[in-house]
């Protein structure tokens, strides 16, 4: 049911032409997803999604909306080619889903390989109970380092873009 709600919210986000509404709806969407994650036993992820999707993203988009027009001006723009591409992609995914393993089944490959190691060995290896933290910061720590670099890169990029003083519409040479 939560998923159905998500679909409705998602559609609403796409269809509204008021960006402020879209942003708010997007925040709701993110919060719902966070709830879904919590239901799926992913506490860490839920916390993060709530903080990021509903928190930071929303604040940032609002900050940008303070600088840019609130309404879309482009005409309704539903194009057939796009619809075809989306349909094909979706059809491919549905086709794939037919062979995906049963949802939540402990016999799924995901729960047979690698995953169990973390569940069984984390405490023996590091003596901490939170497996997510263990995998994140030790077993797959280079990924997490990458993650830190990603956020820093974005920070540097935004800094490079916005730390200069704005000027009036300038053509060509900035």
């Amino acid at each position: 049911m939560l998923l159905l709600f998500l679909v409705v919210v998602g559609l609403a986000v796409v269809l509204t032409r008021d960006l402020l509404k879209a942003t708010m709806l997007f925040a709701i969407y993110s919060l719902t997803i966070a709830g879904l994650f919590a239901l799926l036993d992913a506490g860490d992820v839920a916390l993060t999604e709530a903080a990021v999707g509903a928190g930071i993203s929303t604040v940032l988009i609002l900050a940008v909306l303070a600088l840019t027009p609130r309404f879309e001006t482009t005409k309704a723009g539903h194009s057939l080619p796009a619809l075809v591409i989306v349909t094909i992609t979706g059809a491919a995914l549905v086709y794939a889903s037919l062979d995906l393993p049963q949802f939540g089944d402990p016999a799924n490959p995901v729960h047979q390989h690698v995953g169990p190691y973390y569940i069984e060995q984390t405490y023996a290896d590091m003596g901490i109970p939170n497996m997510v933290a263990a995998v994140l910061a030790s077993y797959r720590s280079i990924d997490t380092m990458g993650e830190a670099v990603v956020i820093l890169t974005a920070g540097l990029g935004v800094y490079a873009l916005l730390a200069t003083r704005p000027r009036r519409r300038d053509k060509g040479d900035r």
Binding site: A42, D44, V45, T48, E49, V52, G53, I56, S57, V110, H111, V114, G115, Y118, I119, M131, V132, A134, V135, L136, R140, D143, T144, G146, E147, V150, I151, T153, A154
Partner: peptide, 17 residues
Amino acid sequence: NPLPHVLILTAIVVGIA
């Protein structure tokens, strides 16, 4: 399984970036 959680934590960060 904790592994997908870890992956998605990373992916969320990538998303916000």
